[in-house]
Amino acid sequence: MNRGAADDAIRARFLRPTYAVDADAVDAWPASGAADTPGEDARCRVFLAVGNDGRLKAAFAAFGPPVVIACADWICERVTAQTVEITHTVTLADVEKALALTPTQRYAGLLAIDALSNAVINLGQ
């Protein structure tokens, strides 16, 4: 993906995220996990639930620049309808590759990964 296309992809997810949590239904999610990056003034929370079929549902809330919201949206898309095991295999490299993150945007991918990991821990509990 060239830079222009990558920027377009990030912008599109930022403007129209598919997995933004319904703020009025946050309590309905059984688990969530958060992470923040004070140096970038950004934070992210991933919400997880397991359906009757054993597949994950995911949503996010985020405060930060567009790339933070795009990464959070991407990671929710990646795990949705998958089993919990998928969450153990998603890496920063996957986010970087999918959204063609620049080195200065890498923190946003890490933020989403960390939020997901914390959500999985809470889901287990």
């Binding site: 912008r11 403007l15 930060g64 620049p65 567009p66």
Partner: peptide
């Protein structure tokens, strides 16, 4: 309650 970069991008690009 909003991040500056998100706000300007949202206004400029939406």
């Amino acid at each position: 309650g909003v991040h500056g970069a998100a706000l300007i991008t949202g206004l400029n690009e939406g």
